[in-house]
Simulated scan of single mutants.
Amino acid sequence: MLKRKRLKDQTQVTFVLAEDIPAGPVSVVGDFNDWDPAAHPLEPQGDGTRAATVALPVHGSHAFRYLAAGDYWFDEEQADRHDGTNSRLDT
């Protein structure tokens, strides 16, 4: 799930997944963090979810995916669109 909050000149995007599906650590990786799995790991929220928040410039389009343990890559079903390889997010 994606949650968005418009700030002055940025869009704050929170990437949210269930705490245990898939099992193990998960990070959101994309062009906004140079595809670095260490940059935005999803952290437990205490409500059965885990999340990571990223501030992105408005009027942009960003490619991203999730990376789970075992080199398991997957897409966000609620992304604005998919380009055949990645999920896409418009801010």
Rank of each mutant, 00 (worst) to 15 (best):
D71H: 06
S87G: 12
E77L: 13
F32C: 09
R4H: 10
P44A: 09
D90N: 10
S87Q: 05
F74K: 10
L89T: 00
Q12E: 15
R6N: 13
Q78K: 12
L56A: 08
V13K: 02
E77Y: 13
P41E: 06
W73C: 11
Q10C: 08
H62N: 11
M1L: 14
Q78F: 09
G46I: 01
T85P: 07
V54R: 00
Y72N: 14
D31W: 02
R88C: 14
R50D: 03
Q12N: 10
L2Y: 00
L56N: 09
D36I: 03
S87M: 07
D36H: 05
D36P: 04
P41S: 08
F64Q: 05
F15Y: 01
D90P: 02
G46R: 02
S61L: 15
W35I: 06
Q10A: 12
P41C: 06
D36M: 07
V54C: 04
P22V: 02
E77G: 13
S61N: 14
D75E: 10
V16R: 03
N86H: 13
F32I: 09
P44K: 03
Q78D: 14
K8G: 14
R65E: 15
G60E: 08
G46T: 04
Y66A: 02
L17N: 01
A52W: 02
F64T: 05
D9P: 06
R50S: 03
V58A: 14
R4I: 11
A68R: 00
G48A: 03
H82S: 11
L89F: 06
Q45C: 07
L42C: 01
K3W: 08
A79M: 05
Q78W: 09
V54D: 01
P25L: 09
I21T: 13
L17A: 04
G70F: 05
D31P: 03
R6L: 12
T91D: 07
D34E: 13
H59Y: 11
P41R: 00
A38Y: 08
R50T: 02
W35G: 02
R50W: 01
P37Q: 02
N33T: 10
S87Y: 03
A18H: 07
T11P: 08
Y72C: 12
A55V: 11
P25N: 12
H59I: 08
G48S: 03
